[in-house]
């Protein structure tokens, strides 16, 4: 099997590391070779962050380069737009429609671009944009956006709900399991 590429992008502190950990466990349990690449240090402080998840028969590079991503899963709308150059022509963007102003917008040095989801679509991106934040809040916590997004991503894969559930159990603290399972289900529209 040719290597598949999933990028998880967002704003430092939004929980993208948990999402990549969950995917890594799921894919490993399915017998794939897997590599997950994270970013630590300065960019975590509210900056733009990206995590790469790659799987297949044999994965070499730990990173995803321009034009290689099968999926871009974004926690924030502007961040989805930032990385479109990494998307394959037939790739899919799954994005939360939440908008978080970056500092240049906060200070008035730049504007948050309008109608980004429409613009991405017009540029040729297949895009699945939805309000993951509201679903996370419905599940019980705004911090569960990561599981809502994983739920939505699951619709594009053939793994069974049980396989996803097992990966969730292995990735989240027992105390928050029910909340996370609910968030996942809301994202997956189960």
């Amino acid at each position: 099997m040719k290597t598949k590429n999933i990028m998880i992008v967002g704003v430092g502190g939004q929980g993208s590391l948990l999402a990549s950990k969950l995917l890594g466990k799921l894919l490993l349990s399915r017998g794939f070779d897997v590599k997950v690449s994270e970013v630590h240090g300065m960019s975590q402080r509210g900056g733009s962050v990206v995590t790469y998840v790659r799987y297949g028969d044999r994965v070499f590079s730990p990173i995803i380069d321009l034009g290689e991503a099968d999926f871009i899963v974004s926690f924030e709308l502007l961040e989805a737009a930032r990385w479109t150059q990494y998307l394959k022509p037939d790739g899919t963007i799954i994005t939360n429609t939440q908008q978080i102003n970056p500092m240049p917008v906060i200070t008035g040095a730049a504007e948050y671009p309008a109608a980004l989801a429409e613009k991405m679509k017009a540029a040729g991106c297949r895009i699945d944009a939805f309000d993951a934040l509201s679903l996370a809040e419905e599940a019980g916590s705004s911090k569960a956006v990561n599981l809502v997004l994983m739920g939505r991503l699951s619709k594009y894969f053939d793994f069974t709900p049980e396989e996803w559930k097992e990966a969730i159990v292995q990735s989240v603290p027992p105390k928050y399991l029910d909340l996370n399972v609910k968030a996942f289900a809301l994202g997956a529209e189960l």
Partner: peptide, 17 residues
């Protein structure tokens, strides 16, 4: 070299803060 999808839009940077 693969090419991605170009968006004709100025994307403001998001530096760490």
């Amino acid at each position: 070299v693969p090419e991605g999808i170009t968006l004709n839009e100025a994307i403001p940077p998001r530096p760490p803060v």
